[in-house]
Design a protein around this nucleic acid. Structure first.
Length: 204
DNA sequence: CTACCGATTGACT
DNA sequence: GTCAATCGGTAGA
């Protein structure tokens, strides 16, 4: 697939639950010196500005999470367990909400992703937030990047194939608080979604 | 400065 | 299924 036009600011300027759900099936593009990388988003989690202790912004603004407090449509890249994770900022300036992109299905630049990840296993290239970042060369230099520019890193419309895949919902993976919130969205049955088979087969 | 933690991953039983 | 390595960010002495 050729590079497609970036989604506009209006796409991101909505609640994180809506953005997370609508990101499924969209395409994540990354242009590197070694070539263009692209994958279909198959899993995303919402983090709320209010009433969500799992959200990094819930304990106030800091150098690390400052991007979340800025305008929508920017990338929020942070490090956890010595690994990177990619979010998109939602809503508006002053409302620190975001959507974590947890997995993509590799579409283009597979050979480079295999080199970046040091594995040939297609399913393991971008199944998980940190794997995705390693495969697509996403690091803290991209924190705050404007995703509506259509350069370096952006998200575009995907093919609207029929029948539309079923969207499933579950609790978020890995978070140690707010386990009752069902804010993880994924394409049911897609092999590139992270998490256990039990969780994905029986959302709770 | 040290100490602790985590929105993870990969190796192992 | 279990478990520990990982290291930047943050809090606290």
């Amino acid at each position: 697939m050729r590079p497609a036009a970036p989604l506009p600011l209006s796409f991101y300027a909505r609640t994180p639950e809506v953005v997370a759900r609508e990101l499924l099936g969209k395409r994540l593009f990354r242009r590197t010196p070694s070539g263009l990388l692209c994958g279909t988003i198959v899993e995303a989690e919402a983090y709320l500005a209010d009433g969500d202790p799992a959200c990094h912004a819930s304990r106030g603004k800091s150098r690390k999470n400052a991007t979340m407090f800025g305008p929508a449509g920017r990338a929020y890249v942070y490090v956890i367990h010595a690994r990177h994770c990619l979010n998109v900022v939602t809503e508006r300036e002053g409302a620190p909400s975001a959507v974590l992109i947890r997995a993509v299905e590799p579409l283009r630049g597979v050979a480079q992703m295999q080199r970046n990840r040091q594995t040939d296993v297609l399913r393991d290239l971008a199944r998980g937030p940190a794997r995705l970042c390693e495969a697509m060369v996403i690091n803290r230099l991209l924190d705050g990047w404007d995703l509506t520019l259509g350069r370096s890193l952006w998200i575009a419309e995907g093919d609207n194939v029929a029948p539309l895949p079923t969207i499933a919902v579950s609790h978020r993976i890995g978070v140690t608080s707010a386990h009752d919130l069902k804010l993880r969205y994924y394409l049911a049955g897609n092999t590139f979604v992270s998490g256990t088979q039990k969780l994905n087969g029986k959302p709770s």
